[in-house]
Structure formats: structure tokens, C-alpha cells
Design a protein around this nucleic acid. Structure first.
Lengths: 228, 228
DNA sequence: CGGCCGCTTGATTAGATTCAACCGTCGTGG
DNA sequence: CCACGACGGTTGAATCTAATCAAGCGGCCG
């Protein structure tokens, strides 16, 4: 009965805007590559809850986690954003402060900043973008319902499988290289529980582990565990 | 560290559109009162997952639950919509099928239907509505992050308190009259667990119970339990 | 009156958290 | 150059929360 949507599939990073940047590389001043870029280490903060946005960020390289602090400061990660994606514009559109945090998931993550003025100017000078935004934002809203249902009704084992399926794709089917703690915060469980579960998967020959790197061996079984 | 946002506060029912109807009562053909209205019994379906929307619905009277079927058909309720609110337009805006269900939460719930054509016509003839929609949808997106954090990190006791606080307001501070099963599906727990918890609250003199009706006695304590 | 449905309670079980300890690696400073 | 400490990762044991299973209650409707 449940949809077959994967965990963390909700596009916190509006892919519908990605080609906005690609288009602009050819035509005008919005090319993010023209802007100064920032090199970040793991856990360096890009923006924080409560602050007002001054602009948006384009990810050049690496991965970024979007999360919120819950009980006892434990992070709940909602999304992992990849290079090419744009983050931090929802708070501009809603005219509220950020209610989530963004930080680099790995070392050598590279981002560039685009000012709120530039973003708003572009938005206002492109009326067709308005409809596109409405459609994309509505689609994202729908996806959150699936995400919540997964998070509340699936077991930790299923959610762990979902997170691995998601990361398998985020890493382009290469080895996954994420801190255990971040992995646990994606799944919404304790680090110890997560470690026990990935060891189960290893024993079942679904994945292999070398230090912190996880290699997915049997993606289909992983998907079936996630959807069970 | 966590925000003080209440459970189910995410406006699945876009209040930003409510006065769209109020305005129109005076000026044109969009008055929902002019349309035929439907009288629903508890659990009668308004729309279902997978179907394509043919229009939107305005709630005249009663309460409507928005939910999704998860594991073993168990409902996860995301939002309770009140009279005056408008539901079912996100699927029109996203151009996807519905991915949630809507049904009457109580007997004698009254809704009216407004066709997709009417809705789209109105949207297109009101350019300022576009910006309003973008702002509202973005705000809702932000609220989902709080909702997920609450659902994954708060205990069942805390979530039960949150749900009661929300319903206290939905019922305008009158007695809450919701099926135990629906209450459990809002909280994301088993019906038995929910019953045990509201009995605890009763013993602590935070609420009183007469048959299925729940009267909130000490709203402040309830709020502090929810936010602990 | 009978049966069904929603509600309630008790007992048991299972899943996951928590606490505690330990290991290995890396980077730093004496 | 080595010692130390910090940090991330791992394992085991105990605990606890909440789910599940089973049974019984009460009211309402046909």
C-alpha cells in the first residue's frame, strides 16, 4: 500500500532549479562558477537555524547535509545534496528565517554563494519561473508525506536499507563514505544500532565494509528489504 | 534546541488560500457556498492516493483527516483540516496524482467541490496569487522539517501531548471528540499505547475523559510535556 | 436480542536505546 | 621521535519503551 518512494528522496535541493544555472552559464551573470567559491571541511556550517538568509548556495563539489537539531542536540538529517544542486532558497521564498542547518558532509566540499538580490532579480525577471517554482514546491510537499510515513512506520532495519539505497545513488554506485554518526542521523537511530545493522547486512553479503567505506554488493536485496 | 512548533502544525490545508474564498464571496462566482455541498459520514473518502485530481474541496463544516497508508494498511495522519480550509490543490499544482488520502474525521462533515478549471482560471487571472502561493508553499516545506524531527525524536508520550494540544485548538478549546484509532494514527503509535498514555494524563489531572470525549484541563502542562 | 465495533486492560515480547568499556588512527606537542 | 589525547568506530550487557497478542467490556444498531 505504501509508495515505493525511497527515504530522503524529497528534493530539499530543488533540482528544478539546477538547469536555471546551466542555462545561465551561457547567457548572463548568474554563472555560479564566476562567483568566489568556498572550500569546506566536514561539519563546517553553511547556514544555521534561526538566521535570515542573505543568499543561496550552489554546490560545486562534495556533499551537503540538511538537518535540524532535536532532543539533546541530536541531528535529524533530511536530505543529502549533491554537486550541481542549489540550497537555501526556501527561506528566501518563504521570507522566514532558516529552520534547518546545512553543513558539509565530507571534506573538500566546495560551494559558492549567490546573493539574495541576484536570486530575487532573476526570479522576478523570469515570470515562467514562477509557475515552475509552484510546481516544484508542490511536488516536494507531496514527497514529504512519503518521507514521514517511512520514518514513522518502517523499522530501523528498513530505514537503514533505504538510506544505503539513497547513498548508493548519491555516490554514483561507488563506495559510500559517510561517518557512522551521519548515517545514523539520516536513519533516525542511535549510532550503535546503525553499526549493528550494517554488520547484519555484511554478514548477509549485501554489503562489504572496509574501514568507514561501504560497498553495496546486492542493491536489489537492499531495495526489497527497504520496501518490505 | 528544537523549535517550539507543534505537531501537525504544517498547514496541509493552505490557510493562505482561505481568504481567497472569502474575498470571492463578495465579488464573483467562486463562492464555495454556491456550489453543491456533500454531507459525509466518518471515514468517507474525499480523495485517494494515486487518483488524478479533478478539483479542490472546501470544508464547510466538520474535520477532515489527511493521511497515507503505510505498513499493513496502517494510516499515518499528517494533518486535520478544519472548516474554512481548502484541500486537494497541491496535486493540481504539482501536476502529479494525489499521494495522500482525505476522509471525514467525524460524522456530518460537509464539503463542497470546486472544479480544476475554476481553480486554474482563478489562479491564472490573479498574478499576485502566484507569489503568495510560492511563499505559502515554501513556508509549509519548512514546517515539514519540524514535523519530521518531532515524529522521529519525541517519545510517544510527547507526541500524544502535541496531538492533544493541536486538537484542543482545532476544537476551539471545546472537548475533543476523535476516535482513539485516529488519535493513535496522528501520533504514529498503536491504539493500545495511546489509550494507556491518555489514561496517564487523566491520572495526572491534565485531561478528563467521558466516553470518547477528552477535555483538556491543564493546557500549559500539556504543552510543557510536548516540548520537554 | 444478538452481533459488531470501538474501547480498554493485562501479559508478554521484541526492538532499539543506553551505558560502559575498549580499540585503532591520526595529529599534536613535549 | 614518541606519548598523549581526541575522535570515530565497535562490542557487550542491561534496560526500557512501545508493539503485539489475547481477552473482555459496553453501547449501539439492525
Amino acid at each position: 500500500m505504501s509508495g515505493n518512494r525511497a527515504l530522503h528522496s524529497c528534493k530539499f535541493c530543488l533540482s528544478g532549479l539546477d538547469d536555471f544555472f546551466i542555462d545561465n552559464k551561457r547567457s548572463n551573470s548568474f554563472d555560479p562558477v564566476d562567483h568566489d567559491s568556498l572550500l569546506l571541511k566536514r561539519n563546517e556550517i553553511i547556514f544555521s537555524e534561526g538566521k535570515y538568509p542573505k543568499g543561496i548556495f550552489h554546490i560545486h563539489k562534495g556533499l551537503v547535509k540538511i538537518f535540524k537539531y532535536g532532543k539533546d542536540g541530536k541531528e535529524q538529517i533530511f536530505q543529502i545534496c549533491k554537486s550541481g544542486e542549489v540550497i537555501g532558497f526556501r527561506a528566501i521564498l518563504s521570507e522566514n528565517p532558516y529552520n534547518v542547518n546545512a553543513a558539509a558532509l565530507e571534506d573538500n566540499t566546495e560551494i559558492c554563494f549567490i546573493s539574495k538580490q541576484d536570486f530575487n532579480h532573476y526570479k522576478e525577471s523570469n515570470p515562467q519561473l514562477q509557475n515552475r517554482l509552484i510546481q516544484e514546491l508542490s511536488t516536494e510537499l507531496q514527497e514529504w508525506a512519503d518521507f514521514v510515513t517511512d520514518m514513522t512506520q518502517k523499522t530501523v532495519r528498513q530505514r537503514t536499507a533505504l538510506a544505503l539505497v539513497f547513498l548508493y545513488e548519491a555516490y554514483n554506485e561507488k563506495e559510500i563514505n559517510v561517518a557512522r554518526e551521519d548515517l545514523a542521523n539520516m536513519v533516525g537511530t542511535a549510532t550503535e544500532s546503525l553499526i549493528r545493522l550494517i554488520n547484519e547486512f555484511k554478514k548477509e553479503a549485501i554489503i562489504s565494509i572496509s574501514a568507514r567505506r561501504i560497498k553495496v554488493i546486492d542493491i536489489e536485496t537492499l531495495k526489497s528489504i527497504a520496501e518490505a
